[in-house]
Design a protein around this nucleic acid. Structure first.
Lengths: 122, 122
DNA sequence: AGACGTTATATACCGTAGAATACAACGCGG
DNA sequence: CCGCGTTGTATTCTACGGTATATAACGTCT
């Protein structure tokens, strides 16, 4: 999964009520896509299973269709997959991050010079 | 003070350690500028004085010069003013928000159609 | 039948961010 | 000299987000 971060900014898409998509949920979706499991994704992110599950539940609730489908039992004991709309949401969000990041890149430099510690880059 | 929000996104400028500037601190600066007092700004935002003061302290610590200067005693009992660099930081941050918001405006529309509840607008 | 690794859910616990409260210092004005 | 409204600081309390833990249901495989 992409470990891409966008230096110096965090972007959150807000609904009227609460944050619908942000860096955390996006990364979780990527880990679920990579591992096929909520619990494996949670372990990879060093996040409790409960929290990961709650984030998945929130995403499935807030969007018109579930972003993650799950099944219990079976060969692997169960699993989770990112749905087509889930991949779509993820791709769109990453694109928005990139565009926002690109739009402010120059301005961030001036801002950086006013800070003691530099902007987060990695 | 400007009550401008940028529909659908929140932007935070991150240093290597922690968020250096975001919607909350920006709004606090505007209230301090408008009222000439940390406590009045806190009351206006329905925030505890302590929290407002901590945010001011963090900003004064993280930037090369204080964004807010204060004095105790005197006619009004004391007060706080946004320094020139403080106004500069605020202006730059609001500009960054605008540019980021503008850059993703079209994409946010597509995102919106995937959400049950619409994007925050006000 | 039983073991395994998941999802799904409940419950108890904890760490900490923030609120509430209290109080000293300051400086002007009555 | 005292009161007022600040800043600045310490202390206590509370609400809550998140962790840890336990357990049930599920389906496949041995």
């Amino acid at each position: 999964m992409a470990k891409t971060r966008y230096p110096g900014l965090t972007l959150r898409i807000m609904t009227s009520a609460r944050p619908a998509m942000g860096p955390g949920k996006a990364q979780l979706l990527e880990h679920i896509e990579a591992t096929g499991s909520i619990s494996a994704a949670a372990r990879a992110m060093e996040m409790s299973y409960r929290r990961a599950w709650q984030l998945v539940e929130a995403m499935n609730r807030d969007f018109v269709e579930p972003l993650v489908s799950t099944e219990t039992g079976g060969k692997r004991g169960g699993g989770a997959r990112v749905t087509p709309i889930g991949r779509d949401v993820l791709r769109q969000f990453r694109a928005l991050e990139l565009r926002a990041s690109g739009a402010i890149r120059t301005g961030v430099g001036a801002f950086d010079r006013l800070l003691k510690k530099p902007i987060k880059k990695r």
